[in-house]
Design a binder for these strands. Sequence first.
DNA 1: ATCTTTACATACATACATGCATGTTTGATT
DNA 2: AATCAAACATGCATGTATGTATGTAAAGAT
Lengths: 204, 204
Amino acid sequence: MVRRTKEDALSTRNDLLDAAERLFSERGVATTSMMQVAEAAGVTRGAIYHHFENKLDLIESLMDRVKLPVDEMFEELAKSIPDDPLGQLKHRCLKIVKQVQDDQHTQALINILFHKCEYIDDVLPIHQRHLHGRNACIDECEKLIEHAIEKGQVSQNVKPRETVIGMFSLIDGLMYNWLLDRDYFNLEQVAKTSLDRYCASLAD
Amino acid sequence: MVRRTKEDALSTRNDLLDAAERLFSERGVATTSMMQVAEAAGVTRGAIYHHFENKLDLIESLMDRVKLPVDEMFEELAKSIPDDPLGQLKHRCLKIVKQVQDDQHTQALINILFHKCEYIDDVLPIHQRHLHGRNACIDECEKLIEHAIEKGQVSQNVKPRETVIGMFSLIDGLMYNWLLDRDYFNLEQVAKTSLDRYCASLAD
DNA sequence: ATCTTTACATACATACATGCATGTTTGATT
DNA sequence: AATCAAACATGCATGTATGTATGTAAAGAT
């Protein structure tokens, strides 16, 4: 089993990414060795070091494959002129939740970020990327809240920044706990009612 | 430097726990070696293996030293006859947040649980303990919501279980994000207003 | 005063994991 | 057709973590 065509090489690379995603998500990043990833992909470590520099590069490539829900949300927010800003916001948040619930790759990645990798210097680049997209998204959502205030959808007493942080934290917490035990509650359902209540209280 | 008195031994043990708590919280559990812990405590690995069986035992001993806020909450809930169940609930949740914000040991441990240790089989005992106390607490809080419904504080439309899960997730998410960047927002303040809103919406 | 045990330090044996260097085979190029 | 380079496999050298076994000096028991 030696050199194959370029398509085969790309397939090998994808197999490696698939294996890494699965193993990292199941057993954790630090405890999974390069050899285990290679074995799971049916190749040797040589294949990994040919396609990726090291473990960190492998992880970063994992992140490149999947568009995180916050990034997608950010893009959609940018190109929409909100007629119903608060509804928009709620809808986008639920979409994030839904993507984590339904899309396997997204779920695996978020699971890794939440539960399967330590937040330390070595893996910080990927967290940085996540947080960066997140903060940009928070800024955008903050503007939505401000619009909602102007439109009278939301009370003038609410502080936009804190409100968004609260919303995102609620979503984060729900996903965090749901990923710990996916049978404990229905993510989408609880997210919907929780968000509804949270938003309703903003009218004050 | 050899055999000291029993008090000295206990002091050594505490030094080790302090060092472990600090290093784990700062650099992560998996990436911190026993030798680094020993060095930080001013002893050799021999001292660690004298006091603890292995890394896992060290971590579990860490957890034994601190009473987690949920456990404390559970105890207090058990011995209180709620006159204002919803207010009680809110108050207890804020107390958890406050403890994480103000008590250094609690903060370090929660930080470890949230960000500095992978959720895998090896460290699962400590997570299990955390989740166990948590679930017991959720059950108790569920009863409080039921009381609140009986008292008319809360609408009959709310589902107690889901409501509690939402509340806890909100708190979790806030602590999770705050621990990532403690200057990004004021934990106690955002927690208070968010909880207030969330609870207010329960009257419906 | 002697003896035992505690509280460590030191040393070693084992086990991996990583990174690189070096092969080897075939697709791609000219 | 010959050559080059891609796509891996294989082997080694190194570092590092772990667990344990052994040493040792003082504390505590008798």
